[in-house]
Write a protein that binds this DNA or RNA. Sequence first.
DNA 1: CGTGCCCTTGAAGATCTTCAAACGCAGTGG
DNA 2: CCACTGCGTTTGAAGATCTTCAAGGGCACG
Lengths: 246, 246
Amino acid sequence: MKSLEKAQPVRTLAKAPLLRGLSAEALEEVAAKATEKKVRAGGTLFREGEPASALYLMLEGRVKLTQVAADGHEVILRFVGPGDAVAALALFGDAAYPVTAGAVSDSVLMAWHRDVLQELFQHHPPLAVNAMRLLSERLREVQERFRELATERVAQRIARALLRLVRQVGRRVEGGVLIDLTLSRQDLAELTGTTLYTVSRVLSEWEGQGILESGRAKVVVKRPHALVAIAEDLAPGTEGRVEGRG
Amino acid sequence: MKSLEKAQPVRTLAKAPLLRGLSAEALEEVAAKATEKKVRAGGTLFREGEPASALYLMLEGRVKLTQVAADGHEVILRFVGPGDAVAALALFGDAAYPVTAGAVSDSVLMAWHRDVLQELFQHHPPLAVNAMRLLSERLREVQERFRELATERVAQRIARALLRLVRQVGRRVEGGVLIDLTLSRQDLAELTGTTLYTVSRVLSEWEGQGILESGRAKVVVKRPHALVAIAEDLAPGTEGRVEGRG
DNA sequence: CGTGCCCTTGAAGATCTTCAAACGCAGTGG
DNA sequence: CCACTGCGTTTGAAGATCTTCAAGGGCACG
């Protein structure tokens, strides 16, 4: 059924950013020390606040990293797919997971427990460097989104979120690029810090302008360039917006 | 004059989180390979977009990390003080600084250039672990603030920002805790994703309620507990707010 | 004593949320 | 085969929240 969810598995471990640059033997050792973990769609890998016991590397499927506010409001920090690492902070004994990781589709992951992990990091310095690079990339991305949330309005943020998803999980289909995961209005709202109602209105308008097509938890971007224009707050190609900010 | 700006210098390098756990000799080697850098208040350490050439460790002073949006809107990501490291991503050749680092007060820093840095990381594994821990702490904090920005309203966010600053640079004074840096309404607005006008109104109200005292670029928190109540969206101690959200 | 910077406050209005109601497709069961 | 039901979506209307603009006040420093 849900062919949307079929993300390509990682064929060669060596391609995962976390493991890049490791020698063949090192790769083998690292792989040997991992355990495999499977999570069904809807299941949870770990929850915010739990002690961080393992680092994961995704092989198949899709996982969503979220935080929940005291009042129940949920925020999506990131989607993670094959090749991506999750929970780099598992290295540090005292830490708790800062997010909840829930499987959006049936997922398969490699897992390294903390003790194993520390040993591996000792023996394979490139691993540490890779992990640091991943961490700093994440940091950069979150900082960027923080700035966006602080300075931009909803339509811009939604445009940016869609563009990111296109880059991350876009799949060419006739007439545009399909965002290749189940993505409800609510999901988009939680990605951009708004409500599902506002997302719905904005998408409706864009659909009217021929920028995209959207259905039940599905989005196909037909004119990415138009989204870029909106994200960058340029004069829109068609017309659409009323006026700049005074 | 500006006694506000006098943050205590780091006496012992070993206390800096970045260098913790290094042996005495290692410390000495690491210190020997650093160069000293001074920046006057108002000066710039590095700018967003420049190639990241060095990692810094602050000894004295205070530095502000900011991002600027295309339309000129500025966002403050973090204040950095003695003992804190800046620009951990300098390790990676290709990277550009994701933020601008401006000195808020006269500052003194140790600097390690990229090549030296990579060598040091090779020879002193604890350094890499420390750096990773720092990165993951930053990540956690930014994610937290992201969630706040996405789910909370302005007053809550300002309360949280003040509480963080109290923890970070609070100094007991008679009648409360002084936030020990030059902090204008504009600064607070850039920390919380709002405008200086809104900050002014909120602070005025809190001042009226006896929660804090504020003057020209200065804030003294008199009743931190009240701020906590506001940050957590509890019923305020005095009265103040109209009603919860729907 | 002036000048600059920061702060305050009012008023108007834009933007976004909230609530309510209804639509429509997908999968289910009769 | 059709109706039913659930869930995601749409849309209107009302209103809260926050921004924007404008004007003025006041403290610090030269």
